[in-house]
Design a protein around this nucleic acid. Structure first.
Length: 556
RNA sequence: UGGGCCGUCGCCAAGUGGUAAGGCAACGGGUUUUGAUCCCGUCAUUCGCAGGUUCGAAUCCUGCCGGCCCAGCCA
């Protein structure tokens, strides 16, 4: 991944730069501020900002705010935060399509003056009838041949609020028989008597996406306007406006296939249902594919960027395996997350050959192969906790299948002694409550002596010095590859085990001052992140980002 | 059944007339005080199918087949 990915967009840009068509490229990321950004947007951000970065250009952030009915300041704020968190920055203040409403209005007038646009009084239902269908051409609107003067007057009155919403629209005069529906006299301006988050009550008419987008690109000097495949049919319209108007530049639109990931939904409507129906905790629930959710989950910006590179950019629609994202996450966290030990389901072990006040401190590396991550201290005491699943009474278990502690046998405590399990204490229900064991002297940092055969290595934490923690185990939200498939049925594919909250966990004392959002690898368990919102003094809350790879689990 | 686009290993993806990169997954083996990491190796005579052009095609042509998008006063 050190090499920049080669894809058709990079190729086009290289050619444009080489031919002198452009000295510098400018791209843009144009979200509509009507929701939270998700993994698909993350990909688009990486494509647009990434290409600019790769070729020494710029990428603007432009809020495509042409529909005041759906947009809110809250979304603008979250979108900016998400992009910055991903590691991308734009030059100067963010842009808004609404910055260009005056110019756009003038250009609409320009079209009217040239006979290329007209005010149409067909209502929505009539307009639909006149539009025709995919296989039948449409019919010209009866208002199509109004004079320039009349159109100018009508459009002015639209702007002045003299018409009700839906009463009329401004349309481009193109071709009602075009096989491309987008060219059947598309709407340029519609009436929306709504307060706009940026322009207040200045306007009661708003430009359509099609009319605003290309012209905004031209105004910003965007050289490569990159969007997803569903806008491909809009390109002829994009070009039509650019051709008809005295714009300062001629940007070009290119499309790539949007990102699809299995076991995931990204439709805004579906994500909203998950939130509204309380299936998840909010837009930033660690199970959500939103950028804020993934952030809270402990997925890093670097993992997301590498994932985008790994997946590539093409025009072929497909579904990427979630496993690829998981790989990118593990790859980054394995490299960068400090190691620690945490016992999620504690089982007490008491060493009978140690005095009650026994205490010694071992040191362990912060990371097995990164000295720069320092060392940590591990207090070792007479009583420790190990994970309940790391012990078994059954000594007939094969050494290959169970490389942990078995009654009457040995196991190595990570970074500490080899121990021997002598006895099991059970409560009235027959449940194991404690293990009596002995440490084998002289085995710290040394090989097992003759005759001592530890089955494997397990993690542990001092009972008296470990820190209490709440650990939230997250798993895939859906248990179906394509939960989207059956339309609204997607909620039937919710994985009932996507969240398990563990409250009695014990983590090693070195985590006492762990900062919110810092990631750790709990050895033999997986990667965990300190929750950025709910960790309070004395009560750590950790979110499981993802488990370690477990090849053995599949084979056994 | 109108128009646009897409089809290269289970998944993603390079390749643009000169004889199939890479990544994920999978499968062997080695190292290992994390059943992790790391390392080494295996994994498309074939590019949706069928014809054609060419000394030579995944790349050009023709015809099929399959998938996606478009009939918001959404973006």
């Amino acid at each position: 991944m050190s090499d920049k990915p080669s894809n058709f967009l990079a190729t086009i840009i290289e050619e444009d730069l080489a031919s002198g068509k452009h000295d510098q490229i400018v791209t843009r990321f144009p979200p509509e501020p009507n929701g939270y950004l998700h993994i698909g947007h993350a990909k688009s951000i990486c494509v647009n900002f990434g290409l600019a970065q790769q070729f020494g250009g710029e990428c603007n952030l432009r809020f495509d705010d042409t529909n005041p009915e759906k947009e809110e300041q809250e979304y603008i704020d979250s979108i900016k935060a998400d992009i910055n968190w991903l590691g991308f920055h734009w030059k100067g203040r963010e842009k808004y399509t609404s910055d260009y409403f005056d110019q756009l209005y003038d250009w609409a007038v320009h079209l009217i003056n040239n006979g290329d646009a007209y005010v149409c009084h067909l209502n929505a239902d009539e307009a639909r009838e006149y539009r025709g269908t995919l296989t039948e051409p449409g019919k010209n609107s009866p208002y199509r041949d109004r004079s320039v003067e009349e159109n100018l007057d009508l459009f002015t009155r639209m702007k002045n609020g003299e018409f009700a919403e839906g009463e009329c629209v401004l349309r481009a005069k193109i071709d009602m028989a075009s096989p491309n529906m987008n060219l059947r006299d598309p709407i340029i301006y519609r009436i929306r008597k709504k307060e706009h988050h940026q322009t207040g009550d200045k306007w009661c008419i708003y430009p359509s996406y099609d009319f605003a987008h290309g012209q905004s690109d031209a105004l910003e000097g965007i050289t490569h306007s990159i969007c997803t495949l569903e806008f491909e049919d809009h390109r002829p319209l994009y070009d039509w406006f650019i051709d008809k108007l005295p714009v300062p530049a001629k940007p070009r639109q290119y499309e790539f296939a949007r990102l699809n990931v299995n076991y995931t939904v990204t439709s805004k409507r579906k994500l909203k249902r998950l939130v509204d129906e309380g299936i998840v905790d909010g837009w930033d629930d660690p199970r959500m594919p939103t950028i804020s959710g993934m952030r809270r989950r402990g997925i890093t910006p670097r993992a997301l960027r590498n994932f985008a590179d790994m997946v590539g950019t093409s025009r072929a629609g497909g579904v990427v395996d979630l496993g690829m994202l998981e790989f990118a996450i593990r790859e980054d966290l394995n490299e960068n997350a400090p190691r620690a030990m945490a016992v999620l389901d504690p089982l007490k072990v008491v060493f009978t050959n140690l005095p009650d006040d026994h205490r010694e401190v071992f040191t362990a590396p912060g990371h097995p192969n990164r000295d720069d991550l320092g060392e940590r201290e591990l207090p070792f005491t007479k009583e420790i906790y190990i994970d309940r699943s790391d012990f078994n009474e059954d000594n007939t278990l094969s050494r290959k299948k169970f490389k942990r502690l078995v009654l009457g046998e040995w196991v190595r405590l990570r970074n500490a002694y080899i121990i021997h399990a002598d006895e099991v204490i059970k409560d009235d229900n027959g449940e194991i409550v404690e293990i009596r064991a002995k440490v084998i002297e002289g085995t710290v940092g040394a090989d097992a002596p003759e005759g001592v055969r530890p089955r494997g290595v397990i993690h542990w934490v001092s009972a008296s010095e470990g820190l209490p923690a709440e650990v939230r185990l997250y798993d895939r939200l859906f248990n179906h590859e394509t939960p989207d498939r059956g339309g609204d049925d997607f909620l039937r594919h919710i994985n009932p085990e996507s969240l398990k909250v563990l409250t009695g966990c014990i983590v090693e004392p070195s985590l006492a001052d762990a900062a919110p959002e810092s990631s750790f690898q709990f050895e033999r368990e997986g990667y965990f992140v300190v929750d950025r919102h709910e960790t309070k003094a004395g009560q750590l809350v950790l979110n499981k980002t993802i488990g370690l790879k477990e090849v053995w689990a599949r084979k056994v």
